[in-house]
């Protein structure tokens, strides 16, 4: 009975994981193919069915028929990580305030302020594109990394606030009260007691920020021209009249690499019992 159950379980898992892994394998093998190998029906086994070539990968770094994506890659890293870090810092502070203190401006209360943050993400991006464009032009920051960082902060901070408000609401107030009794001010309570207990929340919020920032194409495209280019835009510009499947596959793999790495690191953090039993 038990072996049957195990057999079913592993078959199901195997099916599901092959379903998940398949696109990656496909992209991986395509990235080593040439035009002939791609267009002449299904071919799987290198050297036997097709002759592997590094053309796709070479074209990403200034090779024939491609562009050098290392510049945009670095830009994306700079913009995504600095915007995420700033959003996370400001967002966490805002979230703690919204979770622990009562604010009131006329009929507006804490819940409304929290919603105000999230509502930034409800609007379709196209609505924001023109105002952002005009504002950046005013500041002279169009087509610059600093301008993109500013815009990304506006996009990412709501996520950080949203995740962290919820996280702080789940930390019992007794912890704050105990810190006050022990002699902390509200500020030292946050830094010495609440923040060290918030690693799981920070990791989740940071992860979201990085994913959304890294994957954004729309603003990276509309707010830049020639000087500054981010990775998603560079990848799109690889395309030409003859679709270069090999270099697109290679660039897809290389662009998800940092997120995959990050996911492995984060998973370690979360499974080390971070979220379980914040108190008692």
């Amino acid at each position: 009975m038990r072996t049957v159950y195990l057999a079913i379980k592993y078959t199901a898992l195997l099916l599901w994981s092959s379903f998940v892994v398949f696109p990656f394998l496909w992209a991986f093998s395509t990235s080593f193919k040439t035009a002939n190998a791609v267009t002449s029906g299904p071919k799987w086994i290198p050297w036997l069915q097709f002759e592997p070539s590094l053309q796709g990968w070479r074209s990403l770094f200034g090779g024939v028929g491609g562009t050098d994506i290392s510049g945009p890659y670095l830009n994306s890293v700079i913009v995504t990580f600095s915007a995420s870090l700033i959003s996370l810092t400001l967002g966490t502070l805002a979230a703690y305030g919204l979770s622990r203190f009562q604010f009131r401006a006329g009929p507006i209360r804490n819940a409304d302020i929290t919603f105000f943050f999230i509502s930034q993400r409800i609007m379709p991006p196209i609505v924001l594109a023109i105002p952002f464009f005009l504002m950046l032009r005013q500041l002279g920051l169009l087509d610059s990394l600093a301008g993109l960082v500013l815009v990304y902060i506006a996009l990412l901070m709501p996520i950080a606030v949203w995740v962290m408000v919820d996280f702080f609401n789940n930390i019992p107030r007794e912890l704050d009260e105990m810190a006050w009794l022990d002699g902390c001010s509200p500020v030292t309570t946050f830094f010495r007691v609440i923040l060290p207990n918030s690693l799981p929340g920070l990791v989740v919020a940071g992860m979201f920020c990085v994913i959304f920032g890294w994957n954004d194409f729309f603003f990276a495209f509309t707010l830049t021209f020639t000087q500054t280019q981010l990775l998603p835009v560079a990848i799109v510009s690889l395309n030409s009249s003859v679709t270069p499947w090999w270099s697109l596959s290679a660039s897809a793999l290389i662009s998800i690499a940092p997120l995959v790495l990050l996911a492995f690191v984060v998973e370690r953090f979360l499974s080390r019992g971070g979220l379980a039993g914040a108190i008692r």
Partner: peptide, 9 residues
Amino acid sequence: FQVPVIYRS
């Protein structure tokens, strides 16, 4: 307090 409060970190 009635419930134990400890600083987990």
